[in-house]
Simulated assay, not measured.
Amino acid sequence: MTITQLYYVLAVAENQNFTKAAEKCFVTQPTLSMQIQKLEDELDVQIFDRSKKPIELTDVGKKIVIQARNIVNESYRIQDIVDQQKGFIGGEFKLGIIPTVMPTLLPMFLKAFIKKHPKVKLKIEELTTEEIITRINDGHLDAAIAATPLEEENIKERALFYEPFVCYIPQGHRLHGKSKIEIADLDIDDMLLLEDGHCFREGVINLCKAFKDHTDDEFQLESGSIETLIKLSNEGLGMTLLPYLHTLDMRENEKKNLHYFSEPSPAREVSIIFHKSELKMQIIESLQEVIAGIIRGAIAFQDVKIISPIHKK
C-alpha cells in the first residue's frame, strides 16, 4: 500500500470517474486504474462499484476513503514540519472567502500579505459557507474566512474580528427618524434580504427571530448582492442590514441612511477556519496576524453581541 495509491482512490471517489481522476492527478488512466486495482487486490476488497454509472464507492470503500484522507493529510504534514523547521513560508495556499466578506476584506489585506510573503501562491475563491465546509473536509481548501461559530466537528476556528450589523433605512421608512435602533424595532416583513445560501442572511433572520416569530415563507424580496439591496432600499422597498465594512466606502448621500444599534450592537464573528489536521499552519497564522493588524484600525466597536450564522428553525 502506498500513499500514491490512496491519493488516486481519493481522486476517483471525488470525480466518480477514472478518466477525470487521472487528469486531476496528471497520470494516464491505465496507470491510475492499475494502481487502484493493485490496492484492491492487496486488501482483497472492492473499493469501487464499477458497474454503476457514475462509479460509486462500496460500503467498505466509503470507510477506506475516510481513512485514506486522514493518511494523505498526515503525509502532507511531514512537508509542513520541514518547512516550519526551515522557517519557510511559501507554496500554494487555497483560501475560500464568503461573498459578504470578500469585496471589503480582501482589498484591505491582500497587498500587505503578498508583500510580506512573496513566496506564497494564494489561490482565492469566493464560496458560500456550505461550499467552504465541504471543500475543507475534502481537502480542497487549506483555509477559509467565514462567519462563525459553525459548530463543525472537523473544523477549527480562530476569530479575526467582530463586525457589527448596521441598519440602512431610507427616508420615509418608519424607523428613519430614530437615532439608535433597538433589535425589537426590526420587522422581518419589511426587511430586504440576501438570497438563500448567504450566511449573513441567516444572521439577519436569527436576529429578527429573537424578538418575533416568523417563518421563512413570509420573506418577499431577496437579492444576490448587498449593492442591489441598497438600491432596492433607495427605491423605498424596505430597509436592510449591512455588515459594517460595507458602509465605509458608501457615497455621502447614502451614509445619511445609516443607523446604528444601541449597544451591545449585534455583530457577526468573522474567523479564519481550517481543518483540525492543522496543515500549513505557518501560512494560516501569518494570514491571521496580517488581517488582525489591518482590521484593528477599521473597526473600533467593542461592546457587541454575536449573532449566529447557522440556520435556526
Rank of each mutant, 00 (worst) to 15 (best):
L207N: 02
F165W: 12
Q282I: 14
A159Y: 02
D187Q: 08
Q85L: 06
L175M: 15
G91M: 13
E202G: 01
L57Q: 08
T100F: 03
E125H: 09
P103W: 05
K212C: 01
L105A: 12
K231Y: 09
M102L: 12
R268K: 08
Q171R: 07
N257R: 01
H275R: 07
L6D: 15
E252K: 14
I145F: 11
A267F: 04
F18A: 02
L287Q: 05
A210Y: 06
S271T: 04
K94D: 06
T148N: 09
Y168W: 06
H140A: 03
S33Q: 10
L57W: 13
I71N: 12
L245F: 00
L95V: 02
G293R: 00
R174L: 15
K115E: 15
G61P: 13
M1P: 14
K178N: 02
K121D: 15
A144C: 11
L194D: 08
T148K: 05
G197K: 04
A143I: 06
S33W: 04
E235I: 08
D44V: 10
G293N: 07
L160P: 00
G203Q: 11
Q67R: 04
V304T: 07
Y162R: 02
I55G: 02
G61D: 14
F113I: 00
V12W: 00
L141Y: 06
V12K: 00
I205L: 14
K212N: 03
E157S: 00
T100P: 12
D142W: 06
V120F: 02
I183E: 10
L232K: 15
A21T: 04
D216A: 07
P264G: 03
C208P: 02
L141G: 12
D196P: 05
I66T: 10
D41F: 00
G224W: 03
H117V: 08
I97R: 06
D217V: 07
K212Q: 03
A13F: 02
F26K: 14
K62G: 07
Q16C: 09
D59Y: 08
P170N: 14
D217E: 11
F200W: 00
I310T: 11
H214L: 11
K20F: 01
L194S: 14
F113A: 13
K256G: 01
S262L: 05
G90W: 09
L221E: 07
I310R: 15
T247E: 14
E157M: 01
D189F: 12
H176C: 06
L105T: 04
P264H: 06
N253I: 10
D213A: 06
L287H: 04
I47E: 04
E126L: 03
